[in-house]
Amino acid sequence: MAKQILKRVLGLVLILLVLSFMVFGIMYLAPGDPAEKRLTSQGVVVTKEILQAERERLGLLRPFIVRYADWLKNVLRGDFGISFKDDLPVAPKLIKGLKNTIWLALSSLFLALIISFPLGLLSAVKKGKLVDHIARLFSFIGNSLPNFLISVLLMYLFCIQIKVFPVIADGSVKGLMLPALSLAIPMAGRFTRQIRSELIDQLGEEYVVGMKLRRVKGRFILINNVLRNSLGHILTIIGLQIGTLMGGSVVIESIFRWPGIGKLVMDSITARDYPVIMGFVLIMGTIYVVINLIVDIIYRLLDPRSF
């Protein structure tokens, strides 16, 4: 196990190195000038001389490889650089955004699980019955509705009609509820479908048929065998979803004024704020690899045969 983890960590370093070089290269080749974006952000144009001086100040006139090497050297020293947009350090921005995104991601994931797990279970056990149709309808609707529509509908319902939440959300628990629910609904739709499908597969396995023939109680089979055997698959789905959620949700964060990393990165892309984008890429690369590693470890603990 330790050997496996060490191997993954070494792989992570290589992945991050390749990833950072590729992203740095893509940004270098892509059209767009951080200096121009910064100076003309309000629609006021500036002279060529002012623009050139700003490019010089931001170090944009240096060769690509020198810029990348400098950036890498600083990152290895723990310095993610200064934002091209406002000259503020990148690391605190990313930490602040990530912290908010983690809260939103975990809350929405939790909500999605408590909706989808019972629904998927019921739907699988009651396959073809009314409850199955309802669960599938929810799954279909949840999957089909775009995030922004769910957000606005929820806002209208809870803020204007029922008036239990304010439109102007803040960093409090109350402010977290609607954005978390907006993210959770489509996620729950997907989870319900996947859990249902996995459980139906398991329920049709020969071991279940055999146990039923041996008159083992259905509840016992469901809890001790079917659910247990399905956990690995479900865990993989959750792991992948966490990775996606950590990238932030620009739409939800913008609508609910949630200062997460998704909005930060989208604003940074618009402003061609390369140091922030590079920091984000490194963090997200690490998160993806680490989450996959954790999922693998748990998966193997649940099913020692996979060692």
Partner: peptide, 16 residues
Amino acid sequence: YMQEDDPKLLAMQSGE
């Protein structure tokens, strides 16, 4: 700080 149009409209309607 509100970037999106729809929440601004809803905030006006809710009196916020």
